[in-house]
Structure formats: C-alpha cells, structure tokens
Design a binder for these strands. Structure first.
Lengths: 248, 248
DNA sequence: GCAAAAGTGTTACCGGTACACCCATGC
DNA sequence: GCATGGGTGTACCGGTAACACTTTTGC
C-alpha cells in the first residue's frame, strides 16, 4: 500500500451492518454536491462505503482499508457477496454530474465487488473526516435516495446476510464479546424478520456448545439480571457437524 | 455486443461441471505454447474457460458468450462464486511467458469473476475450434498442471457447488430433462462425496413434489426398467418452504 | 409491592436413520 | 435360469413446535 494509484474501472463497495440491540442498521455515507456559485444543492443522497481499488492492493485489502478509514477498526468481518458490472450502473444523470464535478479519473464503466461487513456497534465510533457517515435502520433504506446502484447492492447484501446467517455462526460478529441470550434472540429476529419462542430458542442455543455461559451477570437493571454468554470460534470449528441435509 | 474491444484488466472464468452418470467432470481448455523455431513445447497445461469482458457487455453476458462458444448452448445455468484480485494471480513465470507470446493487450493485473456453470452432458458436443476442450473427472484435477490461479479457482467453485447443492435444487441442471432416481442419487453422491441409503433417498425425493414421475420407463436394459422423473421448477417455486433452521 | 425481563419443562408430532428382500428384464 | 439394477416398509430415535408460570431485581 505505497502507490495509491487507483484502478479506474474497479471498485469495492462495503455494506456495513450493525446491531443496536433493537434493530439492524446499515452504515451509509452522505453525498452532497452544491453549486459553486449560488450554493444550490444539486445532489443530496447516500452511498455505500466504497472506493476504487489501488494498483498495488488486492480486493480484500481495499475493503479493509475503506472500513478502517470509516470506523478505525481492523479485523472486521468481511465477505464478498458478488461482483456487479452492469453497463449502466454508474451512469444515471445525477451520477454523471457527480463524476464531472469530482473529476478524479474514474472510468465511466466500473465493475464493483460487493463486500458484506459485520461490526460490533459497541466498539465503533464513526470517523466523520471530510464526509458524513451514519447508521440507518435497514427498514428505512427502501425510502432513501441513493447513489449509483447502491440501493440494489444493499438489498443483495441483505439477502446474502439472511442466507448465511442460517448456516454459519456469523451473527455473533454483530454482538459484543459477551451478550445475553435475549440479545442474541433479538438479533436473529431482526436479521430474519421473524420471531422465535423463547424456550425453544434457548434449547437450541444450549446445543451450540460454542455459546458459553460466563460467570458474569447483568448489573443495574430493573429486573432479574441476565447471564452473559460468549461465542467461541475455536469450539465452533471443533464441533461443527456434517450437515448433509440438502433441499426440500 | 458490437465492439468486441476488451477490458484489459477484467475477465470472467467459468468452471463448467458436467455429469456422465458415473462421476462429476469439469471442462478444461488445453493451453500449449511451442517454440517457433525448434518446435519445443514451452508450456502445456490447462485453463478454465475464460476470457476478458468486452467494453459493451456485462459480466453475465461475458460468461454466457464464452460458454456459447465452447458448447453451442444458450441458457446454461450460471452463477458467480467470487471475484479474485490477488496481485500475483496471473504472474507466475510460465504465465508471463504466455502473455508475452500471445500479446493481446491484457493487463498484468487482472481481476477475474468466477462463474459456476452446470450443464447437461447429454445435450452438448464440444466445439473444438482452434483450441482443445475436454472433460476431466474432478478427482483428477489435483494432479493436473494448470494455468494462472485456475486450480485454486476450480476448488473455490467446487466448494461453492457443494454448498449450494444442499440448499437449492441446482443438481437437476446436470441431468437430462428426464432421469431415473438412481441417476439422481449417483449425482448427489458424486457431488457430495458420500453415499446414501437407497430407500431413505427415495423417501426424501418423494417429499419433493417438484420431482415428478413420468409415464415413461427405461427400455432395452438388462434388468427391471426404471421409472423416469422430471424436475419441475414451477412446482419448486410454489412449494418451497421457510427453512428457518440456522446453525448448530 | 409492582413493573420488567429472565429463566425454566413437558408433550405431541414429524422427519431422519438403519436395515433386507422381492421384482422385471435381457441374454 | 441367472445376472443386473429397480423398487419397497417398518421400527426407533432425536429434533422441532406449542405452550404458562415463577424468579430476581430496581424503584
């Protein structure tokens, strides 16, 4: 990561999810363009966290770099959910205006690689830098104005997340190091848009030997304090099963 | 698809799987480079079916075009399994020699998008054209000499296939329009590298209402003739279930 | 003592698994 | 009539789903 010369026709876009113990949120960057003379707002919408890759970095590094810049965090969970190369994906009228204005040598044909990122909301304080970044509930995205094909990419990422969460223990990436079972249940409910029976949910979790109770309990809550739990990836890797269940 | 000007730093590579009722095979293209003077073979290995995308086509179209060229078929099942952009993925010594020789204006940094393709072996007759294309059992790939990072891409595709086949009814893409239950079972066994109990397998299939018995039976076989079945995507789409099963 | 969330057990049903024999055909 | 693969049923077990009350804490 020395040169910083961008590849003009390849980018990565990160769909960053977070969980605030109530609902699922996504990190979006404000995009605003004002007329230089009269200050009139020409463009005001949101984009995903993305940028072109550099000539001397691979795709994963580019995604990590972007997230590090926004959140200050390394070691964020990152996974590709697809590559997108539609001919018109960055050529809506307002997007053309935007490119003319910023004039950074991007190509007018850009293939982007989408990354799903999961972050522990409690660890992050957003770095505003020169652009405005904030969390939005995923349920409000449908009504938002977004740049390029980023709304489409967001929904692709959300679908990928919902698919993966049923099959891999990635939801824990969205929780702090220790958490209560009610928090875990709320998270799954938010992710999948369903609700579960509390007792059955807990029975299921009890079979996951990689979700381990701690000595610690909640403190200072106006009800029976909850037990804290921990996700152990090591135990998970050791005990994962065959799961030869295909279809139906 | 008019210009045919290539994008020098973006390609697609197709990992094409086929099933011959015995084992799973993959389609590979022979790559050979001879010294122009003495005829000595400088390079002899295999590549995936891939090429650079054109300026005026999107990723899916590029993959379809490549497959149409090799097999003559449209409407092949195609799905991305990842994008790969390692800095050194096409720069092994022999690959550098290859690029120097063919001199087609490719970049030395190429990001490729991998496509998984499933084809019905009985429908295809390979088009040799100027290069040699043939089927290889997937079990022999480990010992083969391959170009670029294509062996790695092959295993990525195989893993993606094994994951998907458990969760979506895509195996049928590898079978002819009608097939016997033994053929279906052999296919799943080849895909997953396991074996199933015949009675239990058939009970499972019986619950898949989208696998429909035909009036037709096998003819001219030296044993009890088998019933033919049909996969109905329409019925599948209508009857698919919630499958809220996550992890363990 | 009351509000608020944590925590806990039983029963009924269904799907998964293990297992061995007869059947229809070609030669 | 024999070799070859096709086709079938039952018993047990484990997982899933439905369902209501008691416990601990802060105020």
């Amino acid at each position: 990561m020395i040169s910083h010369k961008i590849v003009p026709n390849i980018s990565v876009d990160c769909v960053v999810f977070g969980f605030d113990f109530e609902k699922l949120n996504v990190l979006l960057v404000e995009r605003e363009l004002k007329d230089e003379k009269n200050g009139e707002i020409l463009i005001s919408d949101h984009t995903l966290a993305g940028y072109h890759i550099f000539e001397d970095e691979d795709l994963d590094s580019a995604a990590s770099r972007i997230l590090k810049g926004l959140t200050g965090l390394d070691n964020i969970f990152l996974e590709q959910f697809g590559a997108y190369g539609q001919l018109d994906r960055v050529s809506a009228p307002k997007d053309k205006v935007w490119f003319e204005h910023i004039n950074k040598g991007f190509a007018d044909r850009v293939v982007t690689v989408g990354y799903l990122a999961l972050i522990d909301n409690t660890k992050v304080t957003l770095r505003l830098k020169d652009r405005n970044v904030s969390w939005f509930p995923v349920t409000t995205v449908s009504e938002m104005e977004m740049a390029f094909d980023h709304k489409f990419l967001f929904y692709e990422a959300l679908q990928a997340l919902q698919r993966k969460v049923k099959v891999e223990p990635i939801a824990f990436e969205l929780l702090p190091d220790y958490f209560t079972l009610s928090q875990l249940q709320k998270l799954y409910e938010a992710l999948l848009g369903t609700s579960f029976d509390k007792r059955n949910f807990r029975k299921k979790v009890a079979q996951m030997h990689y979700v381990i109770p701690l000595k610690k309990k909640q403190q200072g809550v106006a009800h029976k304090p909850a037990q804290y739990y921990l996700f152990s990836r090591e135990v998970y890797e050791k005990t994962r099963k065959g799961r030869i269940s295909f279809i139906i």
